[in-house]
Nucleic acid binder design. Structure first.
Length: 321
DNA sequence: TGACAGGGGGTGT
DNA sequence: ACACCCCCTGTC
């Protein structure tokens, strides 16, 4: 009963997400809501709705643990392509994970075994920067809330070439006419160009707190330096990180998060207070400072340290539940 | 059910 | 080391 297109709501039929191996519900949740991305929301027991760039999709776990997706019918073909990039299906995460030093590291082996199929998403670079600028001293739920407010108030409705003109959105009260209102009321995040036009005090109203100043200043900088973001994304890891760290509100941790989750740089090893505590406990690094732990991580986990970090992180979160 | 502290995945000075 | 902000969460 899952194959027919749902014409009433404008969503395409569910279909398998090619290139992503079967995963458990836990791994599914950890992938979408484990701190990599902040715009996935539950729609049911095992279904999620997510937004990135100009994409809106639903995902669910089908029988036999296969991931299935559905998109607004008008955006179907483009979404399939975007989804593939977003999930980095060009990468064999099973092989990458197997190349981590788990054979000589019992704790890592335990973490990998607990979350088989966990992967690193490849999100839009600019959006990832915005998300992690919001993340300082905030938990996932709160970050999601800030970004939802930013999108609702300052982002444009999701639309494609074939979709109705979003410029018709003069009043904030969109015409809830035929079909699923959700299809017409979900916005993408504001672009950096759009953010540069918004007063800091207005941003502050989106629960950003002291982060509003950083976001505003970063937006001003990016507006004054066209191409800077794309050049940074394309630069070698060390240079890209150095450039990101020059932005207001971006330190080593946030820069590494942006490069790991928004540029696919698996060597990036973000050290936050969670990973600090986790490594102190699991690897006997009590008292080590963040920079020392980062050095340990790179040396111990190797060139895919960021991938290893995501498993360690998932493990600690699971222990807390 | 409602009020009230406490603390939070970081950066900049 | 401490301020920056203010919402979430747990608890009474």
């Amino acid at each position: 009963m899952t194959a027919a297109p749902d014409g009433a709501t404008g969503w395409s039929a569910w279909q398998p997400l090619a290139g992503v191996p079967a995963i458990t519900s836990d791994v599914f949740t950890e992938t979408l809501d484990g701190g990599q991305a902040f715009r996935w929301h539950r729609e049911g027991d095992d279904a999620w709705r997510g937004v990135w760039a100009n994409n809106l999709v639903r995902l669910r776990l089908a029988p036999r643990d296969r991931v299935e997706w559905s998109a607004p019918i008008t955006d179907h073909d483009e979404t399939e392509h975007s989804l593939s990039a977003y999930f980095a299906t060009d990468r064999d995460f099973a092989a990458l994970t197997d190349s981590l030093p788990w054979r000589s590291d019992p704790h890592l082996a335990r973490c990998l075994a607990a979350f088989p199929g966990l992967r690193i998403l490849r999100q839009p670079f600019g959006e990832t920067l915005l998300g992690f600028l919001c993340s300082a001293t905030k938990q996932i739920v709160q970050i999601k809330q800030m970004l939802a407010l930013l999108a609702d108030r300052h982002g444009a409705p999701i639309c494609r070439a074939g979709s109705p003109d979003p410029a018709a959105r003069t009043s904030t009260q969109s015409t809830a006419g035929s079909g699923d209102p959700a299809l017409h009321s979900i916005n993408r995040l504001p672009t950096w160009a759009e953010l540069a036009q918004i007063p800091e005090t207005t941003l502050r109203d989106c629960q950003l707190g002291f982060r509003a100043k950083f976001i505003s200043q970063t937006a001003q900088f990016l507006a004054a330096h066209p191409g800077w973001l794309a050049e940074t994304e394309a630069a070698p890891y060390a240079l890209a990180k150095e450039r990101l760290c020059s932005l207001p509100g971006v330190g080593e941790k946030i820069a590494d998060c942006v490069l790991l989750f928004g540029a696919g740089r698996l060597e990036a090893f973000p050290v936050d207070t969670w990973i600090l505590k986790a490594l102190a406990r699991r690897y006997d690094l009590v008292g080590w400072k963040p920079a020392q732990v980062a050095q340990f991580g790179r040396a111990h986990f190797g060139p895919l340290a960021g991938l290893a970090q995501q498993f360690l992180f998932a493990w600690e979160r699971q222990q807390g539940r």
